[in-house]
């Protein structure tokens, strides 16, 4: 898009408008996050002062210390990490198999399978969380972190398959034919050729699965009722509903829980977008 028409003055005017718009958008995006950091690292008496100060004054890490001291925050983060890791393992394994099936083979029921994935992907969990809870309590699976990660996996797998599918399809036929001539069977083809070649996309699926599970609140709060088993989302929400929690402590919690996914997503955004635009929902 390098087509520019008009005189020099309009060109300059246009770029001023463009840059100011970009600046406003960036400010809108960053401000809530910036404000979280400011509130998390400054003492409450500065935070509650009027008029509000726009930059951190006399920064400290008391909020984090309090949080880890007053609440089992370390434990909650570990729980989240455990559930998310297990979800990642299940999701990547199952998605690889599923994506292999729909990208490399022709079979009856492929359309229905794709439809089922699409439907699961669109399904609001809140609509079926109560029946799932009933089933789980019947089989004594509530208050079990591995059982929770199974539900998470069930809901992320469709996304995983949609991200992997275009990557799997992009492998040239010649490569697979050469592998066949060398005596690879279908599973060896997957293991030795496809998985190594598609490792960036698989990594992206892993990150998506990890943080889908890490970010979940609804399923976790319904299935887990013991405080020591809370994932960080549920723990923080319970902290939030206690009126006496210091604001610095709360925002420190949001910071330490919310920042890791932001940082990792910046690295994998390319794969998510290509999965979305190229492969998503081809039926």
């Amino acid at each position: 898009m390098n087509v520019v028409v008009g005189s020099k003055r309009t060109v300059i005017l246009r770029s001023i408008v463009r840059y100011s718009f970009i600046a406003v958008v960036c400010l809108l995006v960053i401000f809530p996050l910036y404000w979280m950091v400011v509130t998390a690292i400054q003492p409450p008496e500065v935070t509650l002062a009027y008029p509000p100060v726009l930059y951190p004054k006399s920064p400290n890490v008391l909020g984090f210390q309090q949080l880890f001291h007053d609440k089992p925050m370390g434990r909650w983060l570990l729980n989240s990490g455990f559930v998310a890791s297990l979800t990642t393992l299940i999701t990547t394994t199952f998605s690889i198999l599923g994506a292999y099936a729909i990208s490399w083979f022709k079979w009856n029921g492929k359309f229905i399978f794709g439809m089922m994935l699409l439907f699961t992907q669109m399904l609001p969990e809140a609509l079926i969380v109560i029946p799932i809870y009933k089933i789980y309590s019947k089989y004594h699976l509530v208050n079990s972190l591995p059982a929770l990660s199974l539900i998470h996996a069930a809901f992320v797998i469709p996304v995983g398959v949609w991200i992997l599918r275009p990557a799997f399809e992009s492998i040239p036929k010649e490569v697979s034919e050469a592998a066949q001539i060398d005596g690879c069977d279908y599973l060896q083809l997957l293991r030795k050729i496809i998985i190594p070649l598609c490792s960036p996309a698989i990594l992206a699926v892993g990150v998506v699965a990890f943080f889908a599970s890490w970010g979940d609140y609804l399923l976790a709060v319904t299935m887990i009722s013991k405080q020591e088993l809370y994932p960080a989302s549920v723990g923080l929400a319970s902290t939030m509903s206690q009126l006496n929690t210091p604001i610095q402590e709360l925002l420190s919690g949001a910071l330490i829980y919310g920042l890791p996914p932001v940082i990792l997503y910046m690295f994998i955004q390319k794969y998510i977008i290509s999965g979305l635009t190229a492969g998503a929902i081809k039926g």
Partner: peptide, 8 residues
């Protein structure tokens, strides 16, 4: 994550 956004 949603919960962190909610807190903010």
């Amino acid at each position: 994550p949603d919960i962190a956004s909610v807190i903010i």
